[in-house]
Design a protein around this nucleic acid. Structure first.
Length: 626
DNA sequence: TCCGCACCCGCTATCCTGAG
DNA sequence: CTCAGGATAGCGGGTGCGGA
C-alpha cells in the first residue's frame, strides 16, 4: 500500500481495526495448465490489487494487536489456478502465525509483520511509514534501511547555500533527489497539448535551407509546412531507452518566445490589446466596477506578433482554430476567459526544464530506462500507458553523475520496493516514485568516474542502436551506405535475380530451409531455398543474402520480399554480406562493452552506499525476480 | 498560476482462432 | 494456406482537481 491518496486510509485503519493479513498481488497473473492465456484475478483492476483482511477493533481494547502475515506476489504469470494459489497462501499464513519457516517459491515472498499499535505506529514503525506499508523479507529490509538512511541525512552544503542565499527553508534539504532538482519536486511532467492530433506532427521533409519543415499532423491529413523555429522535438515514452533517446522525427507546436523570465506565449494581432477581468481584487464587483488587465502587458513593444514571425504556423493554426478552441471542454471558445490563448498548449508545463539539459525517464518500464538529453526534447507524460518524465538539476554539471545514480541497480531496488507495479510487470518511474531516491555523497574522484561512465554508456549505446538499425534495414542500409560513398552498384529487384515459385503471400523466415539436391532446371553455381510449399532459385551468393534478410526480418510479405533491391553482381553481394557480418560483430562487441560499463557503474554506486558483497547480492537477487 | 496525480476513455498492432 | 474478425496488450490522449 503506497499510493499517495491512501495515506489517510493507512493512518486510520490500524486505529479502527486489527490487521489479519495482507496480500500484495502486484501485477501477478494466473495461467493454469489448461488455459491458453494468463488472466488477472480482478480483471478490471489494472493497478494496486491487494487483499487486506481486517477485524474491527472492540472498543476499549488495549494496544495488543498481534503480528500478521503478509505475502508479496511476484509480477509474473503464475502457473496455477488463482484458487490454488490462494489456498497455498492461506496455508502459509497459518504457518507464519505458528512461527514456522515458510517458502512460497515461484509465488513470491512471505513475511510476518509486526502490527502497529493503534494510536501511533511505534510498534510497527519500520513497516508502516508515512510513504507506505512495505512488505519485505528481513534481508531486503536491512539493505533498504541502509539506502534510506542516506536519504534521512541533511546535506550541509545545500543547507549552507540556502541560508546564505536567504532562501526560507520550509523543509530540511535531505539527501534525496528532490533536494537537487531545479523543479519543485523530483521529476517534472512535460507539456500536454490538449489535441495531439493537430499540435504534434511528424516530419517528412524540409526546405533546402532547413528553416521550413514539411510535416504530417498526428491526426492525419495533408502535409503542412511550418517554420522549424516554431517547433520543438517531441518524445513518446517508448522513445526513451536506457542511455539513448530514439527520437522519431516528431515535433510539437511551440508558439513561445524566450525571455529573461522564461518562455512566454507569443501575442497575436487580434488579442495584442486584449484585456481580461483581473482575478482577486475585482472579484464580486459588478461588471462596471471590475478591474481589467492586458494579457500581453509587459511584452516588449517591438516583439512581433505570431502571424508576422511565423506565417506558416499561423496559417496552420487558423485552419484548425475551431478544434483548438474546443479543447478542454471549450475552454478557449470566444467569450471564455482563455479565448485569447486558443493556440497555446493546453498545459504548457515545464517549458524551461524541457528545453534545457536534463535526464529523461520512461515513465512505465520493467527497469529504469533513463537517458541524458541535451537536445531539448519535449515530451508528454500521463496516462496508464506511459510517457516520459524529466529530471532537471540545479547544478547541471552534476547531470552525468546523477544519471548513473538513477540508472544504477540500487535505485531500481529502492523504486521497486516503494513504488507501484502495473500489469505486465511494469513499474512506474514517475515523480512520486523517484523524488525520494537517496542520493549519497560522492568524492570528486567518484563523481568524475560516474561522469565518464555515463558519457561512455551514452556513446556506446548510441552506436549500438545505429548499428542495429543497419542490420534491421539490410539490404537497404547497405545500399544507403554505398550510395553515400558514391559507390552504389547496379541494383535489381529480387524478383529479377531469383526465380520465385509458389511462395505464400506472407513469408515466415524461420521456416526457410535448403533444398539440398539440385532441382530440375537449376544451373551450376545456383542454389534453391525452400520456404513452405514454395521455392526460390538463385545464385549461391544471392541465396546467402536472402537467408540473411529473412533471418533479420523474420516475417515479411511476398511483395516486400520480391521488391527488395539487391546488387546484380555476385561480387557486390559478397561485399554486402561482409558489411552485414561486420555490423553483427560490432553489435556483439558493443553489447559486451556496455555490459562491462554497467557492471562498473553499479559497483561505483554500491560503493557510494557502502554496501557489502552480501548486500549487493540481495539487490541482484531481488531484481532478478521483480 | 503552475505543477503534479490519478483517472477514464479510446485507438491500433498483434495475437489467436476457426472457417473456407 | 489464407483471411476475417474477435480479443487483448500496449500505448497514449485528455482532463478534473488539489496543493504549493
Amino acid at each position: 500500500m503506497n499510493a499517495e491518496y491512501a495515506e489517510g486510509l493507512r493512518q486510520n485503519l490500524p486505529r479502527a481495526a486489527d490487521l489479519r493479513s495482507l496480500l500484495n498481488m502486484g501485477a501477478a497473473t494466473f495461467q493454469p495448465e489448461n488455459e491458453t492465456k494468463a488472466s488477472r484475478l480482478f480483471k478490471e483492476a489494472m493497478v494496486y490489487p491487494a487483499i487486506l483482511s481486517l477485524q474491527k477493533r472492540e472498543q476499549g481494547t488495549e494496544d495488543d494487536a498481534p503480528p500478521f502475515p503478509a505475502v508479496r506476489l511476484m509480477p509474473r504469470t503464475i502457473n496455477k489456478h488463482p484458487e490454488d494459489a490462494l489456498k497455498q497462501i492461506r496455508s502459509v499464513y497459518d504457518d507464519l502465525r505458528a512461527g514456522k519457516q515458510v517458502t512460497l517459491d515461484e509465488l513470491g515472498d512471505a513475511t510476518l509483520i509486526e502490527a502497529p499499535k493503534h494510536g501511533d505506529y511505534s510498534a510497527g514503525r519500520r513497516d508502516f511509514t508515512h510513504a507506505g506499508w512495505y512488505v519485505m523479507p528481513e534481508a531486503e529490509r536491512q539493505v533498504f534501511e541502509k539506502l534510506d538512511t542516506v536519504g534521512r541525512q541533511v546535506d550541509p552544503e545545500v543547507r549552507d547555500a540556502m541560508t546564505s542565499a536567504g532562501v526560507p527553508t520550509a523543509a530540511e534539504p535531505y539527501r534525496r533527489l528532490k533536494t537537487y532538482t531545479a523543479t519543485v519536486s523530483g521529476g517534472f511532467q512535460g507539456v500536454a497539448t490538449g489535441l495531439d492530433g493537430v499540435l504534434v506532427l511528424r516530419q517528412v521533409g524540409q526546405s533546402a535551407d532547413g528553416k521550413l519543415l514539411t510535416l504530417i499532423p498526428r491526426g492525419g491529413g495533408e502535409s503542412v509546412t511550418i517554420e522549424k523555429d516554431a517547433l520543438r522535438p517531441f518524445l513518446f515514452g517508448k522513445d526513451v531507452q536506457r542511455w539513448h533517446v530514439d527520437w522519431k522525427n516528431w515535433w510539437v507546436v511551440f508558439p513561445y518566445m524566450e525571455t529573461d523570465t522564461g518562455f512566454k506565449l507569443m501575442p497575436t494581432e487580434q488579442y495584442r490589446e486584449h484585456k481580461v477581468e483581473a482575478k482577486g481584487r475585482g472579484k464580486g464587483k459588478s461588471k462596471e466596477q471590475a478591474e481589467y488587465r492586458r494579457v500581453f502587458a509587459g511584452y516588449p513593444e517591438d516583439l512581433p506578433n505570431l502571424e508576422k514571425l511565423y506565417p506558416h504556423l499561423w496559417a496552420y493554426l487558423t485552419t484548425n482554430e475551431k478544434a483548438l478552441r474546443g479543447r478542454e471542454n471549450g475552454r478557449y471558445k470566444i467569450g471564455k476567459a482563455d479565448e485569447w490563448r486558443w493556440y497555446d498548449l493546453a498545459r504548457p508545463q515545464g517549458l524551461e526544464a524541457s528545453a534545457g539539459a536534463k535526464l529523461v525517464l520512461q515513465l512505465l518500464s520493467s527497469s529504469i530506462n533513463a537517458a541524458l538529453d541535451t537536445k531539448g526534447h519535449f515530451f508528454q507524460a500521463g496516462g496508464k500507458g506511459g510517457g516520459a518524465y524529466g529530471v532537471s538539476l540545479s547544478k547541471t554539471e552534476t547531470l552525468d553523475s546523477f544519471a548513473c545514480l538513477i540508472a544504477g541497480k540500487a535505485s531500481d531496488f529502492f523504486i521497486k520496493l516503494t513504488g507501484t507495479v502495473y500489469s505486465g510487470g511494469y513499474y512506474s518511474y514517475s515523480d512520486a516514485h523517484i523524488r525520494n531516491l537517496p542520493i549519497p555523497q560522492a568524492s570528486p574522484e567518484q563523481r568524475k568516474r560516474l561522469s565518464e561512465l555515463s558519457k561512455a554508456l551514452t556513446t556506446k549505446t548510441g552506436e549500438l542502436r545505429e548499428t542495429e538499425a543497419k542490420v534491421d534495414g539490410f539490404p537497404e542500409s547497405a545500399n544507403e551506405e554505398r550510395r553515400a560513398a558514391g559507390k552504389l552498384p547496379d541494383l535489381a529487384p529480387l524478383s529479377e535475380v531469383a526465380r520465385l515459385h509458389n511462395l505464400a503471400q506472407n513469408l515466415d523466415g524461420s521456416k526457410l530451409e535448403d533444398a539440398g539436391e539440385a532441382l530440375v532446371g537449376q544451373l551450376p553455381g545456383q542454389a534453391t531455398l525452400k520456404l513452405g510449399n514454395g521455392a526460390i532459385t538463385l545464385s549461391k551468393e544471392h541465396a546467402e543474402l536472402v537467408r540473411a534478410v529473412l533471418d533479420v526480418r523474420g516475417k515479411m510479405t511476398l511483395v516486400e520480399f520480391s521488391e527488395l533491391r539487391v546488387p546484380e553482381s555476385r561480387r557486390e553481394v559478397q561485399g554486402y554480406l561482409n558489411s552485414l557480418a561486420q555490423w553483427k560483430k560490432r553489435i556483439a562487441e558493443l553489447g559486451a562493452e556496455i555490459e562491462t560499463l554497467e557492471g562498473e557503474l553499479n559497483d561505483v554506486v554500491y560503493d557510494l552506499y557502502d554496501l557489502s558483497a552480501e548486500e549487493r547480492q540481495v539487490i541482484e537477487d531481488f531484481l532478478a525476480r521483480y
